[in-house]
Amino acid sequence: MTFSHECIVCIVNTGFSDAVMDAAREFGARGGTVIHGRGTVSREAERFFGITIQPDKELVLILVPRDLTDKILHALYRAVGLKTPGQGIAFSLPVDQVVGLSTFSAEENGEQKDAAGSTEPND
């Protein structure tokens, strides 16, 4: 079953939600919602791998048309992925029904999609 929209969830270190939105906007996202959270991590794993995970996190939820999902996820991977200071992970969930999107969103997204389509990923 295919749906028209998907919900992108991006979990990043606190303070990187703006970077997430900037990267997502570049490829057609219009807005998102930020929720503060606290990550949990195995202390033993931290010691084993010799890394420290910042526990304060921000969850950014972005509702996007399905055809933009891959481009935005790729942009998030490059901008705030695990190898960046944002240490972010991102995934998408299928959305089967939506209500409340602005009526002009489809038109605007179409324009942004064209713009996004002409931009080649760097890596």
């Binding site: 919900c7 969930l93 299928p94 959305v95 939506v98 209500v99 409340g100």
Partner: peptide
């Protein structure tokens, strides 16, 4: 959908997974 339109300051968005 009806409430998002009619409630003053109640505009929002909803989706289901």
């Amino acid at each position: 959908g009806e409430k998002f339109e009619s409630v003053r300051g109640g505009k929002g968005i909803a989706w289901s997974v």
